[in-house]
Design a protein around this nucleic acid. Structure first.
Length: 280
DNA sequence: AACTGATTCAACCGCCTTAAT
DNA sequence: AATTAAGGCGGTTGAATCAGT
């Protein structure tokens, strides 16, 4: 048996809310609250709307202390930082930004912030990308094959120009690290300390006999729940095991956004950056 | 002024989780 | 424990608006 619809779809109004509807909803909730039952609320409030629609309208637009308009640099920083850590968990991110709704943040990320970030990445790497272009435009080498230095810069420690303060740390999270070498940068996954040359053409990766070839960078993260795995490209095989790197290191504490970018960068492939830069 | 493509963002859809029975 | 319904959430859509030609 399928799930019953939350309302009579044929008998409810859809689309943008009128000022009159807003007023009715606001007046009702100001007076009685939502009563913990959005489904029955529209009828009580005299609205021909779906309960879910009322809830959304209230949460995203009508409730008190909603902040609309430009996001500040600090808000940008928080969004980027959290997105890098937890991904598109917009409600959690919104909880850290008083007055902002998850819908607002999601829209802002999808339409502006992501592009802004891309622009800054491209700008930081433009010189290197130009070099790649120079190499590739008159040859049969693909950008991906030529971007060794770009990959290194994107997937290594933050640019010295942005580092203003360093602090020591100890790892507390368990991640995968190369068996042969530990990385000394928080948030780094095994991939960062793996020679980028190993990944310039599509590597193959195996874990418990399972082969997967398409996860160029992100795939490593996705394998975190397995005990160990290896990545092979040509004759080179790097093995990884779960564990904690030894010792302490330093990282840029002041510029949290830059630290977080390391992980955001995983979401944006170097090929995408290259294409956007030259073919936008 | 008219057209077109790009951008924005409110609203909807449908899935997953949680609570109630 | 199983079932049902509502809440909550992230992804997506599409109308309105903007910018460029």
């Amino acid at each position: 048996m399928g799930r019953a619809p939350c309302c009579d779809k044929g008998n409810v109004k859809r689309g943008p809310w009128s000022p009159e509807e807003d007023a009715k909803l606001k007046e009702y909730i100001d007076k009685y609250g939502s009563g913990g039952n959005w489904i029955s609320l529209p009828q009580k409030a005299g609205l021909r709307r779906c309960g879910k629609s009322c809830r959304l309208r209230w949460l995203n637009y009508l409730r008190p202390n909603i902040k609309h308009g430009e996001f500040s640099d600090e808000e940008d920083r928080v969004i980027c930082s959290l997105y890098a850590k937890i991904g598109s968990r917009w409600s959690i991110i919104a909880a850290q930004l008083p007055g902002r709704t998850d819908n607002d943040i999601k829209n802002y990320w999808n339409t502006k912030l992501k592009k802004k970030l891309m622009k800054s990445l491209v700008s930081n790497s433009s010189q290197q990308i130009k070099e790649i272009h120079k190499t590739t435009c008159h040859s049969s080498i693909s950008p991906l094959q030529a971007n060794s230095s770009l990959v290194s810069s994107l997937y290594s420690s933050p640019s010295p120009a942005l580092s203003s303060k360093t602090t020591t740390y100890e790892y507390t999270n368990s991640h995968f690290y190369p068996i042969s070498a530990a990385t000394n940068f928080p948030g780094n996954k095994a991939i960062y300390s793996t020679p980028s040359s190993n990944f310039l053409s599509t590597p193959s990766c195996s874990s418990g006999g399972e082969n997967w070839v398409s996860y160029l960078y992100n795939g490593v993260d996705e394998k975190q729940n397995n005990s160990n795995f290896s990545i092979t490209n040509g004759s080179t095989t790097n093995s990884y095991a779960e564990g904690k790197p030894s010792g302490k290191g330093s990282y840029d504490e002041e510029n949290q956004l830059e630290c977080s970018l390391e992980e955001i960068k995983q979401l944006i492939s170097t090929t995408t950056i290259y294409n956007n830069f030259f073919h936008a």
